[in-house]
């Protein structure tokens, strides 16, 4: 009991995020009838699953103190390769899945390797990887976007149990798995050590480079899953389908209590950020806010979150000094 209380207390801002999300839905549905309807909530939940996968992936590089800016084309790549392979190259669906998995893992590994071993700045490396994937994709498909999504995937992406989309349940399972990885696995323990203090981790006999590389691989896989689900929901893949997500994932991660300096926060937190952003996005659409206002708001919100976090640490530090 004691333990649960402590967990609740430590994660109060994350709970706050979930609470605000629910409240927002409730408040807006008073003004706009349709917003709170079960069908709309179901739409929100599957949007949440797509963004959520990208965000929990992004969590891992950020936990190491890095960043993954290759999310947009990682997800785009997964969707287009699958559709193009099945439609134009006549691959079987399982084979196409295997190819997608291989490509994303390879891209994640290359990013991770260059960042960990060759000391390339994470942002430049992943931004470069984003543009490499874009170029590779364009030249492979000759600029066509891949076409319609295979039936199997669309059925999965659109399936519902009651009003609950299956993909949301799938996403919940994803959160649980990654939570287990973070909190109860050897890798998770090492990841937090690396994120908080690379030197201390190194002197504790941890292979810092391998841990860092693995984080980028996990992010790549999660982004690919998000891309596939999105392509299944939309029914086709198109170029640039991930472009708007680069910034949103970072904002969600920051709102979800993951420190951009690494080592703090977990996937349940970043998922709460994703939920909040999904709802705010949908709200802005309902309120007919322009893209510009949306982007402006992201910027301001993220900056606010960052400054708050930076100050929290400083206040915390001051308090600690008095304690001793």
């Amino acid at each position: 009991m004691e333990k649960w209380k402590a967990v609740l207390k430590n994660n109060s801002d994350i709970l706050g995020n979930y609470l605000i999300s629910v409240l927002l839905v409730a408040v807006i549905s008073i003004f706009y009838r349709g917003f709170g309807s079960l069908s709309h909530i179901s739409v929100l939940l599957s949007d949440f699953a797509i963004l959520g996968f990208l965000v929990i992936g992004q969590t891992f590089p950020v936990l190491t103190g890095g960043i993954d800016m290759s999310v947009p084309y990682m997800m785009n790549c997964a969707a287009v390769v699958l559709n193009y392979g099945v439609n134009t190259k006549n691959w079987s669906l399982p084979a196409a899945f295997l190819v997608v998995a291989a490509i994303t893992l390879l891209a994640g590994t290359v990013s991770g390797f260059c960042i960990a071993w060759l000391k390339v700045h994470p942002m430049i490396m992943t931004y470069g990887m984003n543009s490499i994937l874009m170029g590779a994709l364009l030249s492979w498909t000759k600029g066509t976007a891949g076409g319609f999504t295979p039936e199997g995937l669309t059925i999965f992406a659109k399936a519902k149990i009651g009003f609950l989309p299956v993909v949301t349940l799938f996403f919940a399972a994803g959160i649980l798995t990654l939570m287990l990885v973070l909190k109860r696995s050897a890798y998770g323990k090492r990841l937090y050590a690396v994120g908080n203090c690379k030197r201390a981790a190194y002197f504790s006999g941890i292979n810092v480079k391998a841990v860092t590389m693995a984080a980028y691989m996990i992010s790549a896989v999660c982004a690919a899953v998000g891309g596939l689900i999105m392509s299944g929901r939309v029914g086709q893949s198109y170029l640039g389908m991930g472009d708007s997500y680069m910034f949103i994932t970072l904002a969600a991660v920051a709102i979800g209590g993951i420190s951009m300096n690494g080592g703090k926060g977990h996937v349940a937190g970043s998922a709460s950020g994703a939920l909040l952003i999904t709802i705010v996005l949908s709200m802005l659409t309902v309120l007919k806010a322009s893209l510009g206002v949306q982007q402006l708001l992201y910027g301001v919100v993220l900056l606010g979150a960052l400054i708050l976090e930076a100050n929290k640490i400083r206040f915390g530090g001051r308090r600690k000094k008095y304690d001793h």
């Binding site: 893209l291 206002v293 301001v300 960052l306």
Partner: peptide
């Protein structure tokens, strides 16, 4: 990155 978003949001406005 945040100020980029703010300025390009303003541009879109």
């Amino acid at each position: 990155l945040t100020t980029w978003a703010i300025w390009s949001g303003a541009a879109l406005c």
